[in-house]
């Protein structure tokens, strides 16, 4: 089987851009990342189908000229699934917006605990070395969405 180079490159670009978007902290960007990744996988299935041929109508097209119909059926299934999942993420993004007026994924419980511990560790140093006050000031903000409270050691 000779794979189609154009399709392979397209799949690669879709995967790369999808991964990049997925790394963002905004829900909408992550959603777009998922959509691009899914389409990358769909194009990959088309690459797997081998060279393109005539439409696979039994009896009208000679079998040797047909393109492989099975990956097309799988791509259709995958597209339908992605559609449903996208709708669900959109609903969740909307609900998240209703609840917190932000599109940013909030810190998880374990992150919050780490930040609390780190703040507790930093606090005594502040009294001994007043010069780090400026650096640590950021940690007094409540660790919420988007603050990303990274505590410098």
């Amino acid at each position: 089987m000779i794979p189609n180079l154009t399709l392979a490159v397209v799949a690669g670009v879709l995967f790369a851009t999808g991964v990049y978007l997925l790394l963002a902290r905004s829900i909408t960007r992550a959603l777009l990342g998922i959509v691009l990744l899914s389409n990358g996988a769909n194009v990959l299935l088309l690459v797997a189908a081998g060279p393109a041929g005539e439409a696979a109508f039994y009896g009208r097209t000679p079998e040797s000229d047909m393109s492989d119909p099975l990956p097309q059926a799988m791509v259709l299934t995958a597209i339908v699934i992605t559609l449903g999942m996208t709708a669900f993420i959109l609903a969740m993004a909307h609900r998240s917006w209703q609840l917190s007026q932000t599109d940013i994924v909030a810190d998880d419980v374990e992150d919050l605990r780490l930040v609390e511990l780190a703040v507790r560790d930093v606090a005594p140093h502040d009294e001994e070395r007043p010069d780090v006050d400026d650096d640590a000031a950021g940690d007094d903000r409540p660790p919420g969405p988007g603050t990303d409270a990274v505590v410098e050691p």
């Binding site: 992550a30 998922i34 299935l45 993420i89 994924v105």
Partner: peptide, 21 residues
């Protein structure tokens, strides 16, 4: 739910790509 959904869907994309290959 957001982190669960995104991680699960990412795993699904990997599975689908593996099936394609």
């Amino acid at each position: 739910g957001i982190s669960y959904v995104v991680v699960s869907l990412l795993a699904s994309v990997i599975l689908l790509s593996a099936i394609a290959m």
